[in-house]
């Protein structure tokens, strides 16, 4: 205790004294997080080790819920969710990168307009945007008409309530938030670096592969973080476009809470999703590790 205080003294001398108003300001979000995030999270973790009663949990310690959550249907739903999130996030990235690159490098004076056009859908309700896809993808809808007109498909098209519809919805919904961080890193990338690469004899592809892509790592990591993490818990899109049939974990957890009333199992499944999120965040932290030093 004594040595700790001794160590802390020089630091406190250098740091400006914290004002009471600053501490108060900091206390508000801290309290908010503690009450509305940490406390429910703690309840979820505690419930996940309890015994389920219908619509209630008997507190205790059992691994039964995790055993159930990691077996049979629940395990396959969890794995399917992880697979969905990774694939949909990769698809988002694949579409977002060229778009962001074009806006950052080629759009010239139209870049602001392009960015505004990408962000405009965010001014409308998420629910409305997803529901509009129901109309587009429904049997007899616009998609079916266009594909039939182009002779790429013949007859009725049952896209709604399928995994494909969920993928389309996921990529559509999360594309803008993948484009923005990529745009930021690509926009800030010094053109001199790319020119130097070309001067040293690198082809366009080699320049992209050896310079642009590594330099864009923070943007890629942020884009993946902003897409894959919410996708792991996404419930609205699978429900509206996947037919509300427990396609993904979010829906399965919701069903355990609201329909099956098995709160303990739902909590264990939620904790598994949290662990998956933690793994994604750790992997992304590793991806960008040392970037600051390199950039400096």
């Amino acid at each position: 205790m004594i040595s700790a205080s001794q160590h802390s003294q020089p630091i406190s001398k250098r740091a400006p004294p914290a004002r009471v108003s600053d501490q108060l300001f900091a206390a508000i979000p801290t309290a908010w997080l503690a009450i509305f995030f940490l406390a429910p999270l703690a309840f979820t973790v505690v419930y996940s080790f309890g015994n389920s009663l219908f619509g209630a949990v008997e507190l205790g310690f059992t691994l039964k819920n995790y055993q159930t959550a990691l077996s049979g249907f629940y395990l396959s739903t969890f794995l399917r969710t992880v697979q969905f999130a990774i694939t949909a996030s990769a698809l988002c990235l694949a579409v977002a990168f060229p778009v962001a690159y074009f806006i950052a490098r080629k759009a010239g004076r139209f870049r602001t307009l392009a960015l505004v056009l990408i962000l405009i859908p965010y001014f409308s309700s998420f629910l409305v945007r997803v529901m509009s896809w129901q109309i587009l993808l429904a049997r007899g809808g616009v998609f079916e008409g266009v594909l039939n007109f182009l002779h790429l498909h013949d007859g009725p098209l049952d896209l709604l309530d399928t995994k494909t519809a969920v993928f389309i919805g996921m990529v559509y919904a999360y594309l803008p938030i993948a484009i923005v961080p990529l745009f930021v890193v690509l926009d800030r990338m010094p053109p001199a670096l790319l020119e130097a690469s070309r001067d040293l004899g690198a082809s366009r592809f080699q320049t992209f592969w050896a310079v642009t892509l590594p330099m864009a790592r923070p943007g890629i990591a942020t884009a993946v973080l902003l897409t894959a993490v919410p996708m792991l818990g996404e419930m609205v899109i699978p429900k509206l476009l996947g037919g509300s049939r427990g396609v993904l974990m979010g829906q399965a957890i919701s069903s355990q809470y609201l329909q099956s009333q098995n709160y303990a199992l739902g909590s264990a499944m939620a904790v598994l999703v949290l662990i998956a999120v933690a793994v994604v965040v750790a992997a992304l932290a590793r991806l960008t590790k040392g970037f600051a030093e390199v950039a400096a």
Binding site: G72, F73, G242, G243, R245, G246, V247, A252, Q259
Partner: peptide, 20 residues
Amino acid sequence: LDPPAYPDVGYALLADRIGA
């Protein structure tokens, strides 16, 4: 006529709901 197939992933949830 021509109803869409009930999704494979739906049966287990349906069983859970019946269980409830």
